[in-house]
Design a protein around this nucleic acid. Structure first.
Lengths: 238, 238
DNA sequence: CCAATAGTGTCTATCAGACATTATCTA
DNA sequence: TAGATAATGTCTGATAGACACTATTGG
């Protein structure tokens, strides 16, 4: 195997391989809005632009691709999301000015308060409202990746309540429903929403109440199984 | 940037990157059985073992990752599947003896007759019954990848009829249902199955009939839209 | 006629949509 | 008391499950 001028070859496999990165679309619910985490790029390319938290897979540090995603999220938010959902992997020669590159995309939901402290102390990491983020000029193809993540979360909201992980540990049904409405993009019937949650026994009633303005609302916590539960019948799609 | 002894660096991005490959789990329906395409490896590592059709992404030839998957499938079967469904991307340092490697996995359904001619002429490509394939000792983590593909196809069968693409261009409803039962792993109600197909108008009645043993069965073709159609309500899961 | 396979009728159960009603808090 | 928000009652409609029944072919 001879070295070439414009493409060095790795000893292990001897093949010219593209850059391998990860990108995560981290959603949260805060101030009655759906927000996602953006990071200002501190280095070239696209230096100064806002983009998704992520970075290059380091095969010396990371045991697998998801470990890279987790490592990068911990760096930016200081907390690990309870789960990471793998989205599409995008790889082509247009998406990065450095040439052929691949990004493995993830999405997750996380409680705002869990990472608010850390995020608020730094200027290069910010929660941005989804609609505002989509109007920004973002790095690389991150606009497209956010679209993919949004669609995945929308589908999930139709047949699961995993979105509860974007709320504080204890939350009201009204909060959970409003988040679902933001994810789905249209209002849903209160009765339908509550009925299915109750029948599938997906939440734990803490017994506590929270009050703001009217009758106090019961506070619930997620059950660990709820994350994987799938209703056989979807809520009405748009 | 200095070169290191054990890890050459690429000029474009200067980072040590893992091997990038694709693997496809191609299903078909033949002789009342669900089969998948296996390939005998002709080179190291795992030479001689059977595994999934796939290979290394060639950034000089392939415009994107899916192009690699298509190129490799055409090499093995001489036909392109009508669509490729991206599955998980698996990347870690255990799955390949050559070291840290990544595979972007795809799954697809294809008509058996479309590629039967080519496959039958070569000895290193074979359609294998799913159950038999899972009992074989396959290369790398291909056993796991098949499991992921099978589960994806199973889910799809519960809310779509995209599996029709594993049949000949014209097929009977009984064939389509039997394939669904193989994918889902349990019998389904004939009435439920036919009702939803009829109501969603997903098939075209060719007007022709095929007869074998009893009353002749109507022959149908897929509509192009059917591939993306999603029923709001699933068939009963196991 | 029977055997075999295709196709339909129809009842029930489940569950989402719609929306009205009642409950519980503060001011 | 009014206003606000939470929680429930209840009717309708859509659709899957279950299974019996009819239809159409060959022998």
């Amino acid at each position: 195997m001879t070295r070439q001028a414009k493409s060095s070859r790795r000893p292990g496999h001897g093949i010219e391989t593209p850059l391998l990165t990860v990108d995560s679309v981290l959603f949260t619910y805060h101030e009655r809005a759906l927000k996602l985490l953006l990071v200002r790029r501190s280095s070239e390319p696209e230096k100064g632009k806002w983009g998704l938290p992520g970075g290059i897979v380091d095969i010396d540090i990371d045991d697998d691709v998801e470990a890279t995603a987790r490592r990068k999220l911990v760096e930016k938010t200081s907390v690990e999301p309870p789960y990471l959902d793998q989205l599409e992997t995008i790889g082509n020669r247009e998406r990065d000015p450095r040439g052929w590159s691949v990004t493995v995309c993830y999405t997750a939901l996380i409680a705002h308060q869990a990472c608010a402290q850390h995020v608020s102390t730094v200027s290069d990491v910010r929660w941005v409202e989804l609609d505002a983020a989509l109007k920004m000029k973002l790095a690389f193809d991150h606009h497209k990746i956010i679209g993919i993540a949004r669609e995945r979360q929308r589908q999930r909201a139709l047949y699961s309540i995993s979105s509860g992980y974007a709320l504080a540990e204890e939350f009201t049904l009204a909060e959970l429903q409003h988040l679902h409405e933001l994810l789905i993009g249209k209002p849903i019937q209160k009765r339908s929403f509550r009925r299915r949650i109750e029948q599938a026994k997906l939440l734990i009633d803490t017994g506590r109440k929270r009050q703001e303005g009217g009758r106090p609302a019961a506070l619930y916590r997620m059950k660990p199984e709820s994350i994987t539960y799938r209703f056989v019948r979807n809520l009405e799609a748009s």
